[in-house]
Design a protein around this nucleic acid. Structure first.
Lengths: 202, 202
DNA sequence: GCTAGAATTAGAACACGTTCTATAAACTCC
DNA sequence: GGAGTTTATAGAACGTGTTCTAATTCTAGC
């Protein structure tokens, strides 16, 4: 049992999938998840539907991702990485950390708001995650924070900068949740983020 | 249908329950929810179990609270009100808004950490809520913010104070989520909150 | 190639949130 | 105090996340 278990862990983390076939299966699953989430949000990501669309048996889906939350949070990680890569290719404009952080924040936020269902699905999965998905959640949280610290300066971030990035991430997430549940408009979100960044960085 | 619907809305909001029997039923339901949540967290709050324990039929439970999330968020509101009342009876010590906010924050946080399962249940319900529970969620968010603005000063809060209270609430919630999912220790939470309040109020 | 173990498949089975149905009890208004 | 309406009850039924089973296909090492 022990060797099989460590193999499964590797599948979950997505590292070093033994065969090309497995890497492809995993990709098909994530793609199916993103497609379904984009169309109908959290509720539309039904495990049977994901399995069908990825052309994989239900049992296989569960072997790769042990729950719907794992699946969605992992997919969010994939999406964030893509966004980060795009961001890396262009220099962030702005003369101060304040301006640069605002720029990055505005850009990601607009990106998310362009795909409300997907955002709803991932946000809800992220905040609903329980301890068992801790690793995946941590990874996403880390990706988010490093987006902001990178915008603040090119150097290794100071502790203070890390703390600020974390606060911004927290506020960002909770505004996203408010937007997703229609308790805040896109304008509300933009205003609150700007206000927060001003309080912290100006 | 229209009169029956507005009646149901009143039940949900908990205002003006026509008869004493109904007010008692509602209380039994909330109490059962809190008891079950305290014992086993979100997963232990099973609708059939709540109904059994409150000595109410499943259909009745759903007539009072249209979903598990409504039920838990409403119960969180009840709990927060109790905490606020307690807080109101004692004067908050501290010479500056900084100190007073930290005091309030520390006190509520310690209170929540004393009952981890209950906190887990309510936090997860709160962040998992969808648009249909918007009203309940808003009420809780407002209760949280007003706790902090009250600590900052006795007067009507300024816009800036409201903004700060909101940011603190956001950070607080997201740290609670991290703690509940065991991605942060109680000490982490305390440190991060103090750091946040310092960044904002000092 | 052959065999043991691992991975995959199709589909049944189970758990819990939610909805529905039929009946009984409680309330309202005359 | 009776007719009509609303509310409550017991329990079946349904949907979707998750687990389990039995059979099949793949893969690695000989």
């Amino acid at each position: 049992m022990s060797p099989s278990k460590s193999r499964t862990d590797a599948l979950m983390a997505g590292e070093e999938l033994s065969s090309a076939a497995q890497r492809e299966r995993r990709k098909r699953i994530v793609d199916a998840t993103i497609a379904l989430a984009s169309k109908g949000g959290f509720d539309a990501v039904q495990m049977r539907a994901v399995a069908d669309r990825a052309d994989v048996a239900l049992g296989t889906l569960y072997r790769y991702f042990p729950s719907k939350v794992h699946l969605l949070v992992s997919s969010l990680g994939v999406e964030l990485e893509r966004a980060q890569e795009k961001m890396d290719r262009a220099t962030v404009p702005g003369d101060s950390p304040y301006e640069r952080v605002l720029f990055v924040l505005g850009r990601i936020t607009r990106g998310l708001q362009r795909n409300p269902h997907l955002t709803e699905a991932m946000t809800r999965a992220f905040t609903f995650a329980d301890a068992s998905a801790g690793a995946e959640v941590d990874r996403v949280a880390w990706l988010m924070e490093s987006m902001f610290t990178r915008a603040m300066s090119d150097e290794e971030p100071t502790d203070e900068q890390k703390a600020i990035a974390r606060v911004i991430g927290d506020v960002w997430l909770s505004n996203l949740v408010a937007w997703v549940t229609r308790r805040a408009t896109a304008t509300d979100v933009a205003n609150r983020l700007e206000l927060t960044v001003r309080l912290l960085l100006k």
